[in-house]
Simulated scan of single mutants.
Amino acid sequence: MRHDRTLSGLLTLSFVFFFLFGPVYVAMPIRVAEDLHGSATLLGIYYTAFGVGGLIGGLAAGYLHRLPLWPTIVGIVVGFGAAMLPLGLGAPIGLSLPAFALAGLIWAPYMSTTMALFQRGTTITTLPQVLAANGAVTVLAVPLGTMLGGPLVATIGARETLLLCAASTAALGLIAAGVLVLWRRPAATGPPVTGGR
Rank of each mutant, 00 (worst) to 15 (best):
I106Q: 09
G145I: 00
S96L: 06
L89A: 13
N134P: 01
G104K: 05
I56S: 04
A136Y: 09
A83D: 07
R120T: 07
L10Q: 07
L55A: 14
S39G: 10
L64R: 04
L20H: 09
M84D: 08
I30R: 15
L67C: 10
L105R: 05
G145H: 00
A49N: 04
G121I: 04
F15D: 06
P109F: 04
Q119H: 12
W107S: 01
L43V: 11
W107M: 07
M28V: 15
P109H: 09
N134M: 02
V130H: 07
P128W: 01
F19H: 07
L36H: 11
P109C: 07
L10M: 14
V137D: 05
A27N: 10
F18N: 11
T122L: 11
G57D: 04
F21T: 02
L7P: 02
M115Q: 13
A116R: 05
S8D: 06
L20C: 13
T122P: 09
A27Y: 09
T72G: 09
G121W: 09
T114M: 03
I76P: 13
F21L: 11
T6A: 13
L20F: 11
G88A: 05
G145S: 08
G75C: 08
L105D: 00
G54F: 01
M147H: 02
V78W: 04
L95D: 07
G135V: 03
